[in-house]
């Protein structure tokens, strides 16, 4: 296709929007509503997933060592574990550090009581590694692996927390994908109906084009361009609305529910909209493209 033909089709697409203002407005409204819902849902889901991830990141496995283990062996185990693919962070706490920490927490006001244990650390066997995994799904397999390492006496981990968080993240993921797919399909259906009304009005025009020798792509292109432009406009409006609403809601929650927001953190506007904006534009253009293509197809059979 020549560049001049492409430019002509773009011009016709824009003219079509102007000529059919009412249909164009209805289509923009339809897409705006759909993308607003998709965006809103995505933002809620993303924040949930973010919370779950934060919770997952705070879950760790603690390993304790045999009483007769040497410092060298502890160090070897640390290096071995630190090199594992699934480990995101590993922290060593010696028995002395554990006791110092304990003293600070429970004997801060009565240091004399703790003095009695000066030469006999009551937490002598408590040197340990705290291991944080990149993905909690790997926990079971990793714990099994830990139990095979010589020198490790005990592995502490919370199976329930890990499983609950992992399952919750899974459910949230599935539900979000399902709802986004449903909304996308609804969007295509609605835009297809709206475009169909517009095309029905111009059925005769399409017939004339075909009878004087227009190719399918020449007839289709202005409609597709029209659909994509409407889709993009229909995406920009909810993006603006969502940015404004998200900012306001975060500020409101931060000021009105301080105790709640001290344990819950939200994804920043910049971070979440770096995904929402391209996603909304792609969905808008996609709905416009697919909707108009599907609708015009049957009218091309002249």
């Amino acid at each position: 296709m020549k560049v001049s033909t492409l430019a002509y089709s773009c011009g016709q697409g824009i003219k079509n929007i102007k000529r059919n203002k009412l249909f164009s407005l209805a289509s923009v409204g339809t897409i705006t509503a759909c993308i607003f819902l998709i965006g809103l849902f995505y933002i809620i889901i993303a924040n949930f997933q973010y919370l779950v991830k934060e919770a997952e990141d705070s879950v760790c496995i603690t390993v304790f060592f045999d009483d007769d283990i040497t410092e060298k062996r502890i160090q070897e185990i640390g290096e071995q574990l630190g090199n594992r693919e699934e480990v995101s962070e590993i922290k060593y706490t010696s028995a002395d550090e554990a006791w110092a920490d304990y003293k600070e927490r429970y004997f801060a006001e009565e240091p004399d009581l703790a003095e009695g244990f000066r030469d006999d650390n009551p937490l002598a066997g408590s040197s340990n590694y705290e291991i944080y995994l990149k993905d909690l799904k790997m926990q079971d397999a990793f714990v099994t692996y830990l139990k095979t390492i010589s020198g490790i006496r005990k592995v502490n981990y919370s199976e329930n927390t890990a499983n609950t968080l992992t399952d919750f993240a899974k459910v949230v993921g599935y539900v979000s994908i399902s709802i986004i797919v449903i909304l996308f399909a609804v969007g295509i259906f609605l835009i297809s109906n709206t475009v169909m009304i517009g095309i029905t009005v111009r059925k005769e025009e399409i017939r004339i084009m075909k009878l004087i020798g227009a190719t399918d792509i020449f007839v289709r292109l202005p409609f597709v361009i029209e659909g994509v432009i409407i889709g993009l406009i229909g995406a920009i409006l909810p993006i603006i609305a969502l940015v404004l609403i998200y900012q306001k809601v975060i500020v409101y929650l931060m000021t009105q529910f301080q105790s709640f927001t001290s344990i819950v953190t939200f994804i920043s506007v910049r971070q979440i909209f770096s995904v929402v904006i391209p996603m909304a534009l792609l969905i808008g253009a996609g709905i416009g493209l697919i909707g108009s293509k599907i609708t015009i197809r049957k009218h091309l059979k002249v």
Binding site: S4, T5, R19, M209, I212, G213, A214, T215
Partner: peptide, 24 residues
């Protein structure tokens, strides 16, 4: 006649040429 009602006389005729990608 089957003319395109929203285009003027010139554009109606030019349209047939655009369909076959005639240079402007």
């Amino acid at each position: 006649f089957r003319l395109l009602k929203d285009r003027n006389v010139y554009d109606n005729i030019a349209f047939a040429q655009r369909v076959i990608e005639t240079p402007v």
